[in-house]
Amino acid sequence: MNFETVTAEEFGASLRGLGLNLLVRDVAAQADFLADLFGMTAHRVSADFAIMAYGAQVFQLHADGTYRAHPLQGLLPEAGPRGAGLEIRLYDTNPDAAAARAAARGAVVLQPPTDKPHGLRETCILCDNGYAWVASQPKPDMQIKEPET
């Protein structure tokens, strides 16, 4: 599917499984943040909407104003962080590199890159909208080899 030319109807009808849609104050700024820190690809970026690709997975960004008639709109804070309690885990992103890029941008690194007992090295970074993005990879001693074909 060509994300640059697909119609809204075709894109919506193609979605399956679990979907993620983040409401953000500034779509372009959020898309830039995700592309810069985590190597995501942004498609169809406008003031109202963007399709974000992380590997083979896609999700959506929508501006707050696009939810005018949605009951969720009344729950959004006017200012300050949102997304409390939500962790968005990016299992294929180098946590050390992501934390360094976050620091260079002045983003909040809640947790520096740390080796965890569950086999991952991870960092937790807050975006301007208050979502917690966890970049992680298996610790070097936990790398799993792909089966030979």
Rank of each mutant, 00 (worst) to 15 (best):
S14I: 10
G106L: 08
E9H: 06
P112M: 08
Y54E: 03
Q60L: 15
A69L: 10
L120M: 12
I51Y: 02
G106C: 02
A102D: 00
L34Y: 04
A47I: 04
P112F: 09
D32L: 06
H62E: 11
C127L: 01
D115Q: 01
A42T: 12
M142A: 14
T66S: 15
Y131G: 09
L86A: 15
A107W: 11
L18R: 10
L15E: 13
K145P: 12
Q57K: 00
Q60V: 13
P81V: 02
G85L: 10
L126E: 13
S136D: 12
P95R: 02
A53M: 14
L61T: 12
A104V: 01
L23N: 09
L15S: 11
A29Y: 05
T93M: 08
L110Q: 15
T114V: 11
E146R: 07
G85E: 13
P81A: 06
C124A: 14
D92C: 07
L22M: 05
G17C: 11
L20E: 01
L23P: 02
G39K: 01
G65L: 10
E146A: 14
H70E: 06
A104P: 01
L76Y: 01
P77A: 03
R25Y: 06
K145R: 10
A99H: 12
L120D: 06
A35W: 02
K145D: 08
A29Q: 05
L76W: 06
L90I: 08
D141Y: 03
H70N: 05
D36C: 13
T41P: 02
R16I: 14
P81F: 12
F49G: 01
P140T: 14
A42D: 08
P138C: 13
R89K: 02
G106F: 04
P140G: 07
R89Q: 06
A63S: 15
A31F: 00
I88C: 14
T41N: 06
Y54A: 15
A99G: 04
N94W: 09
T123N: 08
P113I: 00
D32Y: 03
A104W: 05
F49C: 02
R121M: 03
L18N: 13
A31K: 00
E10V: 08
A135G: 15
D96I: 04
G119H: 15
N21P: 01
L126F: 03
Y67D: 05
E122Q: 13
M40P: 10
V109Q: 04
G19P: 04
V27S: 06
M142F: 02
H62L: 07
A103Q: 14
G85V: 08
Y131V: 15
P81G: 13
R105S: 01
D64C: 03
C127N: 15
R101L: 00
F11A: 07
Y91R: 10
G17P: 06
Q73S: 09
A29T: 00
Y131W: 05
A84M: 08
Y131K: 10
